[in-house]
């Protein structure tokens, strides 16, 4: 078991950035305003958004500790695809555009940096053992959706890792589950695109750990999404992606959504 550094809360935990440098910048400022002492990002830095190199200096300057997502692993090692495991041809076509763009536009320097990222970060905060990872603690690209993950299953995953609090991303949709022993399992959502709810805000999680039981707030964050749309168009990224940024509805990568999450969206 690696040593767990003691940290003081609150902890700001960001999910996938998807090259959305404007949301990342806004999230760092927002977290500082909320007196977050530690900042983390759970991976999937590229894909979807414009100019992938822009986010790396922001992460470094703000001292954000970063976990390796499946996207980062693919880009770092120049694999054939993003390892999301889509089966729908339309989803795969859009994933391909996004992946090829990110791969060619990420400099070797940052690809090498991503190749050094850990798959998990463990800290001890307020006496709680906190585990941060990308998809699930057992698998980088496992999708943990609210409606398809039983509480007994999440509890099993947390206990297998000796963790009181587990924080993941990867799906794009945030949720919080209280575990039977008082622990928490949290999907922090993503900064990269809205939560398929018809609003343009993106999400991150703020974990408070200092007194008693851990508590988490899913923060809804507005940023200059029109500027992002402008930059995406300038980079000739698919209009379907731009539409998501401007409307808050997902237009691609929909087949992986379970029934409940799919029903809440427009498409």
């Amino acid at each position: 078991m690696p040593s767990e550094p003691d940290v003081r809360g609150p902890l700001a935990v960001f999910g996938g950035v998807y090259s959305n440098h404007l949301a990342l910048e806004a999230a760092v400022a927002d977290a500082r305003r909320r007196e977050a002492r530690e900042l983390y990002c759970l991976g999937d830095l590229g894909g979807f958004g414009p100019n992938p190199d822009k986010i790396f200096p922001l992460l470094l300057d703000a001292g954000v500790e970063v976990v390796r997502g499946n996207y980062d692993d693919s880009i770092a090692r120049a694999l054939g695809d993003c390892q999301c495991g889509y089966t729908d041809p339309r989803d795969n076509a859009f994933a391909r555009i996004s992946y090829d763009y990110s791969l060619t536009r990420t400099s070797p320097r940052w690809r090498a940096w991503m190749n050094e990222l850990p798959s998990k970060i463990r800290v001890r905060a307020g006496g709680h053992r906190v585990l941060m990872c990308h998809g699930s603690p057992r698998r980088t690209n496992e999708f943990l959706w609210d409606s398809t993950s039983s509480t007994q299953f999440l509890d099993r995953l947390a206990r297998a890792q000796d963790a009181d609090v587990v924080m993941v991303t990867h799906t794009g949709l945030p949720w919080v589950r209280e575990l039977p022993g008082g622990g928490l399992f949290v999907n922090v959502g993503v900064l990269g695109r809205p939560a398929n709810d018809g609003g343009t805000a993106v999400r991150y999680a703020l974990l408070t750990v200092d007194e008693g039981s851990p508590a988490v707030e899913v923060v809804s964050l507005t940023y200059d999404h029109e500027q992002l749309a402008h930059e995406m168009r300038a980079e000739r990224l698919p209009e379907e992606f731009v539409e998501t940024i401007l409307t808050g509805w997902w237009t691609t990568c929909l087949e992986i959504l379970p029934a409940k999450e799919r029903a809440r969206g427009r498409f």
Binding site: G69, G85, R139, T140, N141
Partner: peptide, 11 residues
């Protein structure tokens, strides 16, 4: 399974 295979582990 509903959503295809879990896929290979990335790391």
């Amino acid at each position: 399974s509903n959503y295809g295979a879990a896929g290979r582990d990335a790391v």
